[in-house]
Amino acid sequence: MRLSRSLAYARNVAVVEVEELARTYRTSTGILRRRTVEVEAVRGVSFEIAKGELFGLLGPNGAGKTTTIKMLITLLLPTAGTARVLGLDVARNAREVRKRIGYVFGGDRGLYERLSGLDNLRYFAELYGVEPRVQKLRIQELLQLVGLAGREREKVEGYSRGMRQRLHIARGLLHDPEVVFLDEPTIGVDPVGARELRATIAALTDAGKTVLLTTHYMFEADALCDRIAVIAQGRIVAQGTPQALKAGVGEGTVVEIEVYGIEDAVVERVRALDGVSNVGLEARDQKQVLVVQTLPGRELVHAILGHLHGSEVGRVSSREPTLEDAYVALVE
């Protein structure tokens, strides 16, 4: 059994194997009359990530992305299903899994504020058993990699959001893990910083590491991920390459029309048009934009504008569907 598994692992190299994984949280509320509330955060998800792949987990707030990651990194026990990382069961073999994976989350938590970046890294190097001889060099390399060299002796308290995030990534890579889990690593980082972080993330798979990434930025997922799973309400609703997901919205086009204070009834009438596959109303800057996805080969701009007469209309444009369109169509 053991042998056959490791052989299979060597052959098709699925580094992460998730089968029908589920997690329910039980929380109790109230002091006098205690009520137990159950939240089914993840309801049976299955996916595999191959060696060297950059796999994206997308989904709206509360979809269960972080919960899934926390099961994979052994911080949460699944309530059902199984997950293996590098052939090791995450529930039963936690210690062995921990040695081989790295975990980075977004936001400014997860650091010892009163100490320097270097102190933070050194401590985790000890916890991960990084050989004392190689520690110094390894930390210097990582500081270079994430662009913190020269700032490592400053207290983390004084770090900007982007610096904290880069320190996080350096920490997650200290022990040179084979698999890296990144939960919203670019959240709250400015565009230039985020671009640098994305380059760092892309370099991870170039170095042969396997990466699982969650993000709310669709262009980021599109640019980075080899494959994506879209998760909504604890279930995977679509899985595939970014191209395949975009194709899933249809070969059609997306018509965008700037509108000002449009009525719901009008939106519904556009939605009912023959050849319209999806309609959304987005707020951008000061204006609203009506986003209409149409089936391939249909020229609907005139028909749509026909429904809009009477309301003020701005710029009209049409474009190819993006990953974001595909995503919106999937989770709505």
Binding site: K70, Y103, R109, G110, L127
Partner: peptide
Amino acid sequence: RWHGTLELEVAAPV
């Protein structure tokens, strides 16, 4: 717990 460092410590193999 609040700062999220507890999780990182537990996630370490030590």
